[in-house]
Design a protein around this nucleic acid. Structure first.
Length: 584
DNA sequence: TACAACATGACAAAGTCG
DNA sequence: CGACTTTGTCATGTTGTA
């Protein structure tokens, strides 16, 4: 149903009706309570975030500048208080000894390192460097120390604390790391459930082959993280113009690339995230994804809005073709009704990145008031103010002196989704903006995936991680690649509903299996799925960018951030799929 | 220096349910 | 009506690149 997306021909093409009717109060069916209460609650009441309160960011930065990790610094400040610089430093130094010794040993012998680590951590404990902190009891230390040791080994705070909770306070680091491995890699599904409900996954239950595989995996994980850290200096630079390995209608030399051996499929994979991530993030991502060089593309070469993204994939790059009909490339083409009101001094032809939030009504009012006093020719000062705000919030002209944020329908269209893709079914307006702001630009992704057309005449088996509102599915469908089996993992129920309903509306013949949580997708489950339909041909995913995106003022913690660390799940799952494909 | 950026959290308003 | 949940509004700071 490509017609859906072209939209333009529609008889009631009414994003922007002539009269200035207020935004349709399409009475969002008052049945939003239909959704079951076992919601995903992305921001679960999880642990207090590990980053130190920003109150004293100077101090924070100072220690970061000395080469300590953010988490360490945050923890040290938390423990010692902000004033006590000396004891903070002391704590940090102890942490870093804890961190480096096990890491180095890991490379020698991944079985013994934790024993040694256990020892060194006890040493550090008794060497008196802690004596300043009298009020802290031994047990607290013990716990904190293990926690930080585990975290410095690359485990998340959650993993570490769950392991400590489950194994008891007296558990050695060996036991703890083994527990985490068991939970993480052997995909013991019930590992995270309360002890009473499920039998504790005792190590003896796990056969040695699996254990070995786990250690191997763990070691790989470490090697890559460490390597990525070493590579930090040579940060990947963003290309200008940001056209990746080529975009339609843009003359550029033919590019050939040679993929690293390890990256060559099957399966094909396609990973996406924001281009403007903090330093070192893309180096790490690329390192994990088999050293494939990211392709940075701005979707402004595909549609009327910018969207700077990095894509790491092992797809061929010759003979790509764009989706037809070509989407509008300028604001005027995309939103013809704004033309009438567009002042000559607003020279924008493309919108900025479509984000999850929109400009406030107050702001548009301030702008109207600022313009009212002048007859269409405001002084430069006012012009600049208005333009800055318009650019910042992607406002468009909808009346005399009147700007407004984009409607969800318009965002949908700009991103290449069929009209009403995210509309209805109990989805709120803000949820639409949020889901859309987090999604792919369909034309861009489709251009990259177009090379698969013809390769899978019988249909494709797709594993879609962090699928959101189904950008990849929509892209493949519009390219004309039949979807045979689609396993779609998406935490938000709202989004899963959107994909499910699109699936039904487009009369898909294949199977759609949707899961809520990547962490549930363990090896056993995956193997079972792959055995049932013969593996995946393509693994697509754009892991959360919350902690990477510039718009995040609060927790731009990088790849190790709470949500963005889910990238490692993408890697984990992709690696499992690859191994399965290689064996079969 | 300017500019842009798949956001978050506090709070208020509106809706839901008994 | 009142407690509760959901949705909407708004202001907010930092980082990297050009």
């Amino acid at each position: 149903m490509d017609g859906d997306a072209s939209g333009v021909e529609g008889d009631n093409c009414d994003w922007n009706s002539e009269d200035e009717r207020e935004i349709d109060d399409f009475s969002l069916s008052s049945s939003s309570s239909l959704t079951p209460p076992n919601e995903e609650t992305v921001t679960g009441s999880g642990e207090a975030s590990s980053s130190a309160g920003s109150s004293n960011s100077k101090l924070f930065d100072k220690f970061i500048g000395m080469g300590f990790t953010e988490k360490m610094v945050a923890k040290a400040i938390q423990e010692n208080g902000e004033e006590n610089t000396d004891s903070i430093l002391n704590t940090l130094l102890t942490y870093s000894t804890l961190e480096t010794s096990p890491q180095e040993q890991q490379h020698i012998d991944s079985d013994n390192y934790s024993l040694d680590c256990d020892g060194s951590f006890l040493d550090g404990f008794s060497d008196g460097s802690w004596s300043d902190n009298e009020e802290i009891t031994n047990t607290v230390f013990d716990e904190d120390d293990k926690l930080s040791s585990l975290m410095s080994m690359g485990y998340t705070r959650d993993e570490a604390s769950i392991a400590m909770e489950r194994c008891g306070l007296n558990a050695s680091l060996v036991e703890l790391t083994d527990f985490i491995c068991a939970a993480q890699i052997s995909k013991v599904e019930d590992a995270y459930l309360p002890v009473e409900e499920k039998p504790r996954p005792k190590l003896p239950c796990i056969d040695s082959a699996k254990l070995k595989k786990r250690k191997q995996y763990d070691y790989e994980m470490w090697k890559r993280k460490k390597q990525a850290l070493l590579d930090d200096d040579e940060t990947i630079r963003l290309p200008n113009p940001m056209i990746g390995f080529g975009v339609p209608n843009e003359s550029h030399p033919t590019i050939h690339r040679t993929l690293p051996e390890a990256a060559i499929g099957p399966p094909y994979f396609y990973y996406e995230n924001v281009a403007l991530a903090p330093k070192g993030v893309w180096t790490t991502i690329s390192r994990f994804l088999y050293d494939v060089e990211p392709e940075f593309v701005d979707s402004k070469y595909f549609c009327a809005a910018a969207r700077k993204r990095g894509y790491v994939h092992n797809l061929p790059i010759q003979n790509r073709f764009p989706l037809l009909p070509l989407p509008p490339h300028t604001i005027h083409e995309a939103l013809p009704l704004t033309r009438k009101w567009w002042p000559s001094w607003d020279e924008r032809t493309k919108l900025n990145c479509l984000q999850t939030c929109i400009g406030s009504a107050k702001l548009t009012e301030r702008i109207r008031k600022a313009l009212e006093d002048y007859d269409g020719e405001p002084p430069l000062r006012v012009q600049k103010y208005v333009l800055d705000e318009c650019r910042k919030w992607n406002l468009v002209w909808v009346g005399r002196n009147k700007v407004a944020p984009l409607e969800p329908d318009e965002v949908e269209m700009l991103l290449g989704f069929p009209r009403n893709h995210t509309r209805g079914g109990g989805i709120s307006r803000t949820d639409r903006y949020k889901s859309l702001g987090n999604s792919f630009q369909v034309d861009t992704v489709a251009y990259h995936l177009s090379v698969l057309k013809g390769m899978f005449p019988g249909g494709i088996n797709l594993l879609s991680l962090f699928s959101g509102i189904g950008g990849a599915e929509v892209a493949l469908h519009r390219i004309g690649i039949p979807l045979k089996n689609v396993v779609s993992v998406e935490i938000s129920e709202v989004n899963r509903n959107i994909v499910r309903s699109w699936w039904e509306q487009t009369n898909q013949k294949g199977n759609l299996i949707d899961l809520a949580d990547v962490q549930q997708l363990n090896g056993d489950r995956l193997e079972q799925l792959m055995n049932s339909f013969g593996g995946f041909d393509l693994v697509v995913g754009g892991s959360p960018c919350n902690n990477l995106a510039g718009s995040n003022r609060h927790h731009r913690d990088g790849l190790e951030g709470k949500e963005s660390a889910l990238f490692y799940d993408y890697f984990r799952i992709l690696d499992l799929v690859k191994n399965w494909s290689n064996v079969s």
